[in-house]
Amino acid sequence: MTPVLATEAASLSPVALFLQADIVVKAVMLGLLAASIWTWAIIVSTGGRLRRERKASEAFEDAFWKADDIDKFHDRNSSDVSPAARLFDAGVREWRRSTGGKQIDKDGTRARLATSMQVSVAADIDRLSERLNVLATVGSVAPFVGLFGTVWGIMRAFTSIAAEQSSSLAVVAPGIAEALFATAIGLFAAIPAVIAYNRFGHALDRLEARLTRFSDRFHATLSRELDAG
């Protein structure tokens, strides 16, 4: 590579493109870079959290179906905070409240048990998905923010053509390169956000389905206890 070409290549490096950009394009690049960092922080933390919650719920369910006494199992696992454990706790608490009196309304007890466990499932899914809206926002907005930087950079390129009265590549290349770099950063932020959003949404759907199945089976167990009593 000749010295001239080496200098031109260096001037089009990512750092050089950022330093050469005007304040508007710099703001766009910094905003998109911050969004990308935030996105990856959410991806790492949420991915680990969902894995832990899923494994803890699976372990709790396996232990529950091997237990002989529901009340003793509940007392032994009162400190468990997995989604399945919270669902189980909600069901047991409602069971004790509904069957603690002298007269028991069986149909009302069944309805209240179903409602309390459904609320527990919904609350856990809401809790686990609370930051997915950030991924959805970044995934949908970042490309347009990058496009804004692109349009602004191209406008600067045309302004340079008018000021220099020349359309040579040396005049327009910096502005066009800045524009394309802004677009690239926008896509760098958006693509992982969209992939992670879809991936986590699928994982949450599977967890919700698993919790719902556990809720139905536990409800059936308590319903049989109600009929036996």
Rank of each mutant, 00 (worst) to 15 (best):
Q118R: 10
I37K: 07
L204V: 08
D62K: 13
A163Y: 05
A35K: 03
R86L: 12
D62Y: 00
L226T: 11
K66E: 13
A34W: 05
F181C: 15
L132M: 12
G48K: 06
H219Y: 10
A136C: 04
V15G: 14
R112N: 07
P3G: 08
F181Y: 13
L50K: 06
G91E: 02
I125C: 03
W65T: 03
P143Y: 05
S98W: 05
F88E: 00
W40H: 15
F181E: 09
L87S: 02
F188S: 10
V134F: 12
A173R: 11
T159P: 00
M29P: 13
N198K: 13
S120N: 08
T2G: 15
L180Y: 07
D75Y: 08
S45R: 15
R127C: 04
D80Y: 11
R131F: 10
N77I: 01
T39K: 09
E178N: 04
G175I: 00
R49W: 02
D71N: 00
D69A: 00
M155H: 00
P14G: 10
R93S: 01
D22Q: 02
R210K: 00
L32M: 02
N198M: 01
S167L: 10
S166Q: 03
A63H: 01
R206N: 14
G139Q: 10
L19G: 12
D124T: 09
I23V: 04
V4R: 01
R54P: 04
T99N: 03
Q103S: 05
A163L: 05
H219G: 09
L5I: 05
A6M: 10
V28D: 10
V171C: 13
E94F: 14
S82K: 07
G91S: 11
R127I: 08
L187K: 13
A177C: 06
A163Q: 11
L135G: 12
A170Q: 08
K66S: 12
I161D: 07
F158M: 05
E8K: 13
S36C: 08
S140M: 07
L132C: 10
I185A: 09
K72G: 01
V25S: 12
F73V: 00
T46L: 03
R110L: 10
K26A: 06
D62Q: 09
I191M: 03
D22R: 01
F18A: 12
A35V: 09
F60P: 07
S140R: 01
G100R: 13
R112A: 12
